[in-house]
Computed example of a mutant assay.
Amino acid sequence: MVGKEALNTQYWQELQDKSALAGITLDSSISPADFRIYGDRLAQRQIEMFQRYGQYPLSQSTVIDLGCGLGRVSLPFSRVFASVTAIDINRRILDAGRTYCADATNIVFIENDGATIPLPSSSVEYCYCGGVLQHIKVLSVILDYFREGLRILKPGGLLNYSIQTWMDDIVSGNNIGKRITANDLNKVLSEFDCEALALIEDPKDPVPHLNVVILKKSDEFLASTVQAQLRDTLLVRQDVRTGIWEDLPSYQKFARLWAGPRKNVTFWS
Rank of each mutant, 00 (worst) to 15 (best):
V138M: 10
Y53E: 07
W245V: 07
D113P: 07
L143E: 10
V212H: 04
A33W: 13
D205F: 10
A182G: 13
G23A: 13
E48R: 09
D144E: 11
T85L: 12
R45W: 08
D95S: 14
F50M: 11
F81Q: 05
L215P: 10
N160T: 10
Y126N: 02
R91Q: 15
G69Q: 00
A223E: 14
G131D: 03
A228W: 06
A22K: 02
Q229P: 06
N264S: 15
H209F: 10
L7D: 07
K216W: 11
M167L: 05
D103L: 12
M49P: 05
A33I: 15
Q60C: 08
V73W: 02
V236A: 01
S83E: 12
C194N: 08
Q60H: 12
R231M: 11
G243Q: 08
D232L: 08
N160M: 11
P76V: 12
N8S: 14
S61D: 04
D239T: 03
R92Q: 14
R241E: 15
R91P: 12
T25I: 06
Y53W: 11
L199F: 11
I180T: 07
D168Q: 01
G260S: 02
D184F: 01
F109P: 00
V108A: 10
S83C: 11
D202K: 00
A198G: 12
W245Q: 00
L159W: 05
E195R: 11
V63K: 00
R36D: 12
S61A: 13
I107Y: 03
K187R: 15
F35P: 01
F77D: 01
N183E: 12
N90M: 04
V188S: 04
V207Y: 09
T266M: 00
T266L: 00
R241F: 14
D27I: 14
L235E: 12
V63R: 05
P249C: 08
N175I: 13
M167A: 07
S74A: 14
S123V: 01
L158H: 06
Y11A: 11
L153M: 00
E125F: 01
K187L: 15
S218P: 07
S190Y: 10
D168K: 02
N112Q: 04
A104W: 03
G149D: 03
D95T: 11
F254V: 09
E125Q: 09
L150A: 00
L26P: 02
